[in-house]
């Protein structure tokens, strides 16, 4: 293994070559030429990240089993879960939208929670996670397509729009989605490149 090459970092955005420096907690390294983020040292260690992933898994379960909001009209009430909404859109002829929503709000976030949890769970025990390489590929690919935070804002807009006509009751699902947004943002902000370094250091 060429050690001189192993110590280099190449900016993904402009191809400039940098020498890797050790960072203190919370510091980030930026490209000297285009100022893109090169790498960072996170605030949290592997154990704390694993705890966050577990918490995200619990919140994911609650967010998808409890209704998000209820509407009332003349004493009739109607509440919606995420999957209820997906099926409603699909049965009303917008199947493609239903598929996209299911992927972006259910399957991709679910995969993120499970796969991050899996990798961090093994790394904290200093063992090599089975399937490490394909899992890292999947996590890199689905990252931009997981959109829980957009959904949270969308729920707010929908509630305000419907609120001018109907009675609105917020259900536990919306709070779980809010918590999931925070947790998933923290978990997904973990630098994936750093995972490769950790994997080598911890499982040598």
């Amino acid at each position: 293994m060429d050690t001189s090459v192993a110590n280099l970092v190449i900016c993904e955005h402009c191809d400039a070559v940098h020498r890797r420096h050790e960072l203190a907690r919370g510091e980030v390294a930026r490209c000297v030429r285009c100022q893109a983020l090169l790498y960072r040292c996170p605030w949290l260690d592997v154990n704390s990240m694993f705890a966050l992933a577990l918490a995200a898994a619990v919140m994911f379960f609650i967010a998808n089993t409890w209704p998000i909001v209820s509407l009332g009209l003349n004493g009739i009430h109607r509440s919606a879960t995420l999957w209820g909404a997906i099926f409603a859109v699909a049965s009303d002829g917008a199947g493609l939208v239903a598929v996209l929503v299911a992927l972006m709000l259910f399957f991709f976030p679910l995969l993120q929670v499970i796969l991050f949890g899996w990798i961090l769970g093994f790394l904290r025990l200093h063992r090599r996670p089975p399937g490490f390489v394909p899992i890292m590929r999947i996590l890199t690919a689905i990252g931009p397509w997981s959109m829980v935070e957009v959904f949270l804002l969308g729920t707010l807009v929908a509630v305000v729009k419907a609120g001018s006509i109907f009675d609105i009751i917020l259900q536990p699902g919306i709070w779980a989605f809010a918590a999931l947004t925070v947790l998933l943002t923290l978990v997904a902000s973990f630098d994936l490149r750093r995972m490769w370094v950790l994997q080598r250091e911890r499982c040598a």
Binding site: A85, V89, V97, A98, L105, M147, G154, K161, A162, F166
Partner: peptide
């Protein structure tokens, strides 16, 4: 994607 999610929820509710 915001508007797409808004419509999805309103259709269900």
């Amino acid at each position: 994607m915001l508007d797409v999610f808004v419509v999805t929820l309103l259709v269900a509710l």
